[in-house]
Computed example of a mutant assay.
Amino acid sequence: VFNAVQANSISSALNNAYGFDKLYVGLAIAGVTALVVFGGIRNIARVAEIVVPIMAILYLLLAIVVLVMNITAVPHVLSLIFKSAFGLEQAAGGVTGGVVAAMLNGVKRGLFSNEAGMGSAPNIAAVATPTPHHPVSQGFVQALGVFIDTLLICTATALMILLSGLLEPGSGLTGIELTQQALSTHIGAAGMHFVAIAILFFAFTSIIGNYSYAENALTYLGAGNKFGFTVLRCALLAMVVWGAVQQVATVFNAADASMGLMATINLVAIVLLSGTVAKLTQDYFSQKKAGQSPTFHAEDYPELRGQIDADIWKR
């Protein structure tokens, strides 16, 4: 489902910038994705992985330029964000449920942005080598990812949109098209093209990443065979094409339902593991306080025996 959202962003951005038909864009994305997941042509994904950090840095730099250009209006916009986020204006106007509605929408979009609590990010953390060599250090890296993704990049986008003056309820201008138009207001037509190219790389790497998550999960569940992978890959391509031609509200509603299900399951696991997490965190800071480089000792956690790969945590 999440890949449908990514495909929708790509097709909408390219349609808005270049007039490309959304169906053809969806088919093209599905074709390139098929080359990666069926044909094993990983170089396509590797190129995108190299370009994405560069595009992210350029995007943030562009946001800074826009903020500097409109520096006098920034305090008002930040105030507007705060009041709208907590429903203060709605509450003052006697509209019940304003706070809940605003916060609920913020939670949904924030959850989609950083995936915190959904259990998907650990798929990436699991293949990384933490430094210091301790699980808690990897946890801090994941927390930093939430900060960069949501508080920096998403806030930068929100500020550029609000500073453009294009956000009008009921105007029909939403999603990636709103971001493109907003940036065009600030820097001209180049803004629309930049967002289209950036979202192409951002969203495509997300599609490949989401597939990797699903493939790993399928293998863990014992269905990692040729038939299982073929069904998964066909479903992936179908969702890409479907998402490319749907309305943005449709794909986000589907994503919200999926996120709710994932978070519900994962939060139960988090609660069950909270004792171990607390013990790990205490161990990490105890070693730091003693002037040591925190190192995980698997033998200190008998409750995890048989549940972790001891070879990963060899000293």
Rank of each mutant, 00 (worst) to 15 (best):
V1G: 08
V1D: 04
N8H: 05
S9D: 05
I10Y: 01
A13N: 01
L14M: 04
L14S: 01
N15D: 14
A17V: 06
K22E: 04
L23F: 12
V25E: 10
G26D: 12
A30S: 14
A34K: 12
L35R: 09
V36E: 04
V36K: 03
V36Y: 14
N43W: 14
V51P: 00
M55W: 04
M55N: 07
M55L: 15
I57R: 01
L58V: 09
Y59L: 03
A63G: 11
V65T: 07
N70E: 07
I71M: 15
I71K: 06
A73Y: 02
V74C: 02
L80G: 11
A85S: 11
G87C: 03
L88I: 01
A91C: 02
G94P: 02
V95H: 12
R109V: 09
R109L: 09
R109G: 02
L111D: 01
N114E: 04
M118K: 12
S120Y: 01
A128Q: 10
T129H: 12
P130W: 02
V136E: 03
Q138G: 15
G139P: 00
G139E: 02
V141P: 09
A143G: 08
L144P: 08
G145K: 02
V146C: 08
F147D: 04
I148A: 05
T150K: 05
L152D: 03
I153S: 01
I153P: 01
L163A: 01
L163P: 03
G165L: 05
G172F: 14
L173C: 08
T179F: 04
T179A: 13
H186A: 06
I187N: 05
G191Q: 06
M192R: 15
H193E: 10
V195Y: 02
I197G: 09
A203V: 06
I208M: 10
G209F: 07
N210Q: 14
N216K: 15
L218H: 00
L218T: 00
L221H: 11
G224Q: 01
V231S: 08
C234L: 14
L236M: 12
A238R: 04
Q246H: 11
V248N: 11
V248Y: 13
A249H: 11
T250F: 13
A254L: 10
A254K: 03
T264W: 14
I270P: 00
L273E: 11
T276K: 14
T276I: 12
V277M: 07
D283L: 07
Y284H: 03
S286K: 15
A290E: 15
S293A: 10
D300L: 11
R305L: 12
G306N: 08
G306F: 00
I312T: 09
W313L: 10
R315G: 00
